[in-house]
Amino acid sequence: MQYAGGAGLPVGADAIAFGRELLRQGRRGLHAVFHCNTQQTNLLAAAGALDRLECGFSGLEGFGFANGLRRAVESGQLLLEDYSNLAMPLRFLGGALNWPFVPTTSCIGSDIQAVSAFAPDEVPARSKIPAVRDPFGGREIGALSPLRPDLAAIHVTLADPRGNGIVIGSEWSRFELSRAARRVVLVADHIVDTDCMRQFPNLVRIPDVVVEAVVWWPFSAWPAASPGVHDADEAHMKLMNEALATAEGTERYLADYVYSYEDLSAYLALIGDDNARRLADTATAFLLDPYRQWFLPPERVEALTAANAASASAGQAEGVPA
């Protein structure tokens, strides 16, 4: 399966909790497509869940290089195909618009164009970013392959039960990815009443028509940040990356922070009440002030989730796809 994550920068707003759940369910052999590497791909790579990865950036910014990703690539377990941070959203845009290829001047003449991890014996690589001729001006440019992931798990700040999503902070390529992926799951910090989306229709960057499912999972970006909701847990960012540097450390991390919880309450207990309050005391909290009146309380969200699960079960019992 080709799986994509939607993130704003390597240290912010990625649905890292979704990657943890992929591991909890024993998923393997994934072909990951990320605009930039995050702690999610760092974890998935370290745990051996990825066979292939395409991304535009592979570090963790101030927290150093992604040790789990480095180890997986250097051992030969994972093939890493790199593009520029412009090429990746262009490829998502091409998938969204159903283009056969995307004309580009990005990466042309560089090793990114010349070398392919997916075709290591082909130098220069002819199939990664092949040359095409501009039919109007006649100059030679490149052709990027469009991306149409099977599944995208996209972190959003706010979602309503219908699947409309609002992103606070750096959007990066979440807009294009939501249209390119065959199935989209929104992982939201807060569930809001649909009246919120009606009040701010211009901010609904991901509409319900392209969304398969909505998951309410507070601190789903932890230990990275979610602007307006919580800051990055710098201590855990360092602990996590140090642990993923070795197979032994990865096993300990998986045992302590992936396989050790069964529900949201237990997940939040891993973070800790005091730590969560400290992280939520963020200087960007004012960004959510216009929307707070529409926040659905946890008990309402849980009731909606239970009702939806019951409806899905009834539909399956009657032979109707959920």
Rank of each mutant, 00 (worst) to 15 (best):
W216M: 04
L50E: 04
A117C: 04
V301E: 00
Q113E: 12
C55I: 03
S265N: 04
N275E: 10
P89V: 06
A159S: 14
W222N: 11
D134R: 07
I141R: 08
F200Y: 15
Y291H: 13
E318T: 06
D193H: 15
S145R: 13
I206D: 14
N85C: 12
H31M: 06
G109I: 05
Y291I: 09
A245L: 14
T157E: 04
L268S: 01
G109N: 12
A314K: 05
E54T: 15
F136Y: 14
R133K: 10
A235C: 03
A306H: 11
P207G: 13
I166D: 01
R27N: 00
Y291G: 04
N241D: 02
S116M: 03
I112G: 02
G138V: 05
D160A: 07
P124F: 01
L30I: 11
N164T: 13
L177D: 09
R278K: 05
V229K: 00
E74G: 00
G56T: 05
A309N: 09
A309E: 05
L43S: 05
F57K: 12
L264Y: 06
G95Y: 06
R198C: 03
S127G: 05
V215L: 09
A7C: 10
I206M: 15
H190G: 02
D14L: 06
A131K: 07
A13D: 04
F92L: 13
A269V: 07
T305E: 09
A221M: 07
G272R: 03
P290R: 06
R179Q: 07
R292Y: 02
A7T: 12
G94R: 09
S84T: 10
I154V: 15
N85P: 08
H155A: 10
D195C: 12
L268Y: 08
F136D: 06
L147E: 06
A232D: 02
E122A: 05
A235I: 12
D256K: 11
P161D: 02
E212S: 15
A47R: 00
S127M: 09
R133T: 14
P321H: 02
P297L: 01
L270D: 05
V229C: 05
R252N: 15
A280D: 01
G64L: 00
G12S: 15
F118R: 11
G26Q: 01
S110P: 11
P223M: 11
V187I: 13
R148F: 09
A232Y: 04
R162K: 09
L279Q: 08
E74F: 06
A13K: 04
L147A: 10
A180P: 00
F136L: 08
V209F: 13
D256F: 03
C196N: 14
A225Q: 14
F57V: 09
V258T: 10
L30Y: 08
D121F: 13
F57E: 15
S116P: 03
S220C: 13
P10D: 09
F136N: 10
N98G: 00
F118N: 03
P146W: 07
R183T: 03
R126A: 14
P124S: 07
R277F: 09
A180K: 09
D274F: 12
Q40M: 15
A153C: 08
R148M: 09
R300P: 01
E176L: 11
L69H: 00
D82K: 14
E171V: 14
E262N: 12
L177G: 14
E302M: 02
T284L: 14
L288C: 13
